[in-house]
Design a protein around this nucleic acid. Structure first.
Lengths: 196, 196
DNA sequence: TCTTCTGTCTACCAATTGGTAGAACAGCGG
DNA sequence: CCGCTGTTCTACCAATTGGTAGACAGAAGA
């Protein structure tokens, strides 16, 4: 794998778990068996690296979503929601750093330096239109599609990343726990989203 | 107001908006018209200050919740949930730094140094028991009360703090927007929580 | 008046931070 | 063998960080 790609991967892992401020270029380079100057050779600044990592994470996130959702009837909003929930929960288990990074990127301070990936913005637009269609046909509750979309996003995100909160309260989340949580969330969404 | 209290208040504001790592003792002191050594006179370290600020924020948060919920029939779970939602949304508008700080405190890295306030833990226990009673009487969906509680918490939190995400996407949240969001969330919760 | 305690200050400090300048070195085409 | 290009290195650096030591001032109490 190219050095550049190794840097991106390791940085995603570290930024997503330890946070951007909590990760020094020095420590990152040590983990890679390099000097930090080599990192700065590929990315002009730490901020540029962060931007690149966010872009990569957003792309990976969307790829996972697309892979699942593309198998589904685009008119079946509920099936799409269910697919999205499944993806997010799987990522929470298998790629926790990825979700951590997306959360890190949407923190108040970080947004100043880093714009959300273009692809993510486009994807949100598309999802918004899909929801608007569903709304017009009366298959979903709610008025403002974009706001409803954000509601879905933050609900999924919040529930999926609460693993950390559970750990902090002394509850070690198990596979079974997460499965239960997903069931509860799906029941939540199902009752709120099914045809009126 | 005592200097100690002024430090706590300013620190909460700064930690909650700029983040802990993004706030230096120097900048904090400058904002207070002091030297950072004076801060360290009251709090032995930056971490101790953060711990104190988290405790204060948790207390304030719980006070707000208690004030609303104590007016409600303790057996009426739905009324309590509605009250909690109202409180969180009001805080999102009037004391955004407070919610920001609670989110900051539940970040992966921060929890290492800072335990959740004891009072918050006790409060969560109480809420858990209330939910369990409701579950036994069959007035609410769901199985595990503690998990359901976390679901409620993260859902409310996620939706309320998505103001930042909206801003990042170029949507300036208005009072009306937030009111709509609250309505949507309440509809969400109502349908999911009302007697089966 | 002398002492003591509280609070704020000046003066430092060691460590770490992100970042720059430029040497060394490898491989490769000519 | 030469020069070129891409990559990694050593050597620095200025700035900032959290934190320590101790002087100094003022108020309070004896």
């Amino acid at each position: 794998m190219s050095t550049r790609q190794r840097i991106l991967d390791t940085a995603l892992e570290s930024f997503g778990t330890t946070g951007v401020d909590g990760t020094s270029l020095d420590a990152l380079a040590r983990e890679l068996g390099l000097r930090k100057q080599s990192i700065l050779y590929y990315f002009n600044s730490k901020n540029a690296l962060f931007q690149a990592v966010v872009d990569e994470a957003a792309n990976e996130f969307i790829d996972e979503l697309d892979a699942v959702i593309s198998d589904v009837d685009p008119r079946d909003v509920w099936a799409q929601v269910e697919g999205a929930v499944r993806v997010v929960f799987r990522l929470a288990l298998q790629r926790p750093a990825l979700l951590g990074l997306l959360r890190e990127a949407s923190r108040p301070g970080s947004m100043v330096a880093v714009q959300l990936s273009t692809r993510l913005a486009v994807h949100i637009d598309a999802a918004q239109h899909a929801l608007e269609n569903a709304l017009q046909e009366g298959r979903v509750l709610g008025g403002n599609a974009r706001l409803l979309l954000f509601s879905l996003y933050s609900t999924i995100m919040g529930v999926a990343t609460e693993v950390e909160v559970l750990r902090a309260m002394g509850i070690e989340p198990s596979l079974r726990t997460l499965a239960e949580r997903r069931q509860e969330l799906l029941r939540f969404l199902r009752v709120a989203l099914v045809p009126v």
